[in-house]
Design a binder for these strands. Structure first.
Lengths: 226, 226
DNA sequence: AGACGCATGTCACCATCGTGTCACGGCGTG
DNA sequence: CACGCCGTGACACGATGGTGACATGCGTCT
């Protein structure tokens, strides 16, 4: 299955060059010409990797990076920068960028770095038997495990628990959970979340009356505790 | 999501220049032409950052700065000054301005400083732990901690303590607390604040008879001491 | 110093909101 | 067709927020 790459770059000639080369490498490509469009496409297409220019119209690459990382930690992000500013580089990496290239760059090198980033990510996702306490997920096989023993789970249950395990200790509103797990354009009621939380609790909690992992934060939403 | 910047500047040509440049950088912009309007817009729009000229009609920039800082410590404020007076600079910074530029200035430098201020602010807001003395808050997880041990807290209690921790050493009236924590359109009696203060004291004070952290300022309101 | 007045501390109470739970209908899949 | 999953609505229960009444204490004025 081809991996999807989102290119966020306003210079048409650079964009064309990247599309040519990456297309030949067999990636699925999506392109945005400014920051806002980039952010939107990142949300809708959920690419595996994003090539992100820093100098962009409408919304700077740094802000796009920040916005994406605020919502999602899985996507690899490779930054393109036109000026060789160390400060920007450090900031970008500290904001969660995976790699950083300064223009002008060789396309071959960029492709190599993209491959490396995707490889790292795959290994993480793959090795990422997400595991917290007695609960773990076999992400590849989409299995839910309790002390290593498999627990039957449905698709949604799995996705929700995966999101929780990926963000331990953070309280989320029902709206946020709905956005993150069901997708940004899904429309549903808060009750749905409650139901899935209840189902998850019955599967992974010792005592579903007094949940230890998925805790209710009254007035806010839910939090997964490590 | 784009950050909002409020420009308070009476010189139309400078204002135009700032609007052009900052607009291109992707910020949402709000503009005021005198001090009073600036203060009003600061209250209604809650911008992330304010660019504030010192020489203004109706109300001097220094007074606007003072008024804003009396109500709110989160907004970044960058001062523009037409004369190079060291005294003004020191005063402005001591009143809580984040940065200070003297005209004439390069727009690029101003943009850079604005970005830097916003970055600092982000980091402060984002760093998930507020901590003063033995009391700390896990903001992301919405947990209240005493010496690292969790203390049960409700949503309102948490919000109120969070506000106190964010503004140590400053005395607030009940009205101000109500505004800031409950929201500007909430309607409630002063008794409510007393009650929540009392509840917080029982949770975080050694001796709730003789509170050390949340002190009563008779005739005024309450103050949180570091 | 004493007394008065006002601001604050405290308590109990209740309406309301938030959450857990259940049952049901629709939809897609085997 | 039948089954399982998903999502919604209804309902009940408990926590919570907010209010008023009352107690207390501080400051001030005489």
């Amino acid at each position: 299955m081809a991996e999807t790459i989102l290119l966020v770059e306003d210079d048409p000639s650079i964009l064309r060059g990247l599309q040519m080369n990456l297309g030949l490498e067999g990636f699925r490509l999506v392109a945005a010409h400014d920051g806002e469009e980039g952010l939107k496409l990142a949300r809708t297409h959920k690419p595996d990797l994003i090539v992100l220019d820093l100098m962009l119209p409408k919304m700077s690459g740094m802000d796009v990076l920040r916005a994406i990382r605020a919502e999602d930690h899985d996507t690899s992000i490779v930054i393109l920068s036109s000026k060789d500013q160390e400060g920007e580089k450090v900031l970008a990496l500290s904001l969660g960028a995976d790699d950083y290239m300064t223009k002008p760059f060789g396309v071959a090198e960029l492709v190599a770095r993209i491959r490396a980033s995707l490889r790292r990510r795959r290994r993480n996702v793959r090795s990422g038997e997400l595991s917290v306490g007695r609960v773990s997920l076999d992400v590849e096989g989409r299995r839910m495990l309790q002390d290593g023993r498999e627990v039957e789970s449905t698709a949604r249950e799995f996705d929700l628990l995966k999101f929780f395990l990926s963000h331990p200790g953070v309280a989320f509103s029902r709206e946020q959970l709905m956005q993150q797990v069901w997708g940004p354009d899904h429309f549903g009621t808060a009750r749905t979340i409650d139901n899935f939380v209840a189902r998850l609790r019955q599967k992974i909690e010792e005592d579903s009356e007094d949940p230890k992992y998925i805790e209710t934060v009254r007035g806010i939403g839910y939090r997964f505790n490590p």
